[in-house]
């Protein structure tokens, strides 16, 4: 097998708190290979965002290493596009300026003509052409996420890190966004890490699923998703889909209960 593009190597992270160090990520190891789509699923507050922050370069592990193509992550960079849990569109820039933002930076500057072409392309792909000169305050939640995706794509990252990008959307919009994501990934392949709470979303989108435990996050199990790309909605009805879903759901519920128990234990100890 080829070298992994991303490697979590015995990664642990502790936050210093008033009550002493709080272990949030505990001895996590897994690899993500070129072109893979890895979904990470686990109970709320277990340490998923923290895990992604280490890969994005915002946080350093307390021990262990996060490697990108064999080199330790030193900080954020435009090789890793990130979609954050909250909408991160810039409210002071128009839709067009948001998409162009990364292209105006020294790190990925392109000539003005090329920049316009890229912006136009993603305006079209993401269905935002009618809103090119509007400010984000006029956009719906789904449109904001499409804008965040367009902006991340515009600088041609090799990796896409997404932290519950569709968590705040209604079911219909969410399903549209999933399909849009699959389409754009089919057109421009990336190596993807997606954090999600939704078992269906993980199975529908990912090639592999990492199930993590209640805090501190450990790898509970890694399952391969047996469906080939391109995928379509029909796989939701497949027998393997249902089996996989109940298997993962059991694991997640188990960890969810553990997390709840933890919260209660904390409440009692106070």
């Amino acid at each position: 097998m080829s070298e992994p593009r991303i490697r979590f190597e015995r990664v642990s992270l502790e936050f210093p708190t008033a009550a002493g160090p709080l272990r949030v990520v505990d001895d996590v190891s897994y690899d993500i290979h070129e072109g893979e789509f890895v979904a990470v699923i686990g109970p709320s507050g277990c340490g998923k965002t923290t895990m992604m922050n280490m890969l994005a370069g915002f946080q350093r592990p307390t021990s262990g290493r996060v490697l990108l193509d064999g080199r330790e992550v030193a900080g954020p960079g435009s090789d890793r596009g990130v979609m954050f849990q909250e909408y991160g569109v810039f409210p002071w820039l128009t839709v067009r300026e948001n998409i162009a933002f990364g292209l105006t930076l020294k790190a990925n500057r392109v000539p003005a003509g090329e920049r316009e072409a890229i912006v136009e392309r993603y305006l079209g792909l993401m269905g935002l052409a009618g809103f090119a000169d509007a400010y984000p305050k006029h956009l719906s939640g789904g449109m904001r996420q499409r804008l965040a995706l367009a902006r991340a794509y515009a600088v041609k990252p090799q990796f896409l890190l997404m932290d519950e990008p569709f968590g705040a959307l209604d079911a219909q919009t969410r399903s549209n966004m999933q399909n849009l994501l699959l389409e754009i990934l089919a057109a421009e392949r990336k190596t993807v890490m997606l954090i999600t709470h939704s078992v269906e979303e993980a199975i529908y989108l990912a090639s592999r699923i990492v199930i993590v435990t209640a805090r501190p996050a450990r790898v509970r199990e890694i399952v391969a998703v047996p469906f080939a790309y391109p995928r379509d909605e029909a796989i939701h009805e497949a027998r393997e889909f249902g089996e996989l879903r109940s298997h993962i759901r059991d694991l997640v519920m188990d960890e969810y209960r553990a997390q709840q128990g933890q919260a209660r234990a904390v409440a009692f100890s106070e």
């Binding site: 435009s78 909250e86 790190a107 990925n108 600088v155």
Partner: peptide
Amino acid sequence: LFIRVARTLGAS
């Protein structure tokens, strides 16, 4: 958040 977003897009 906005500062983080800008950093991930490559801003110095």
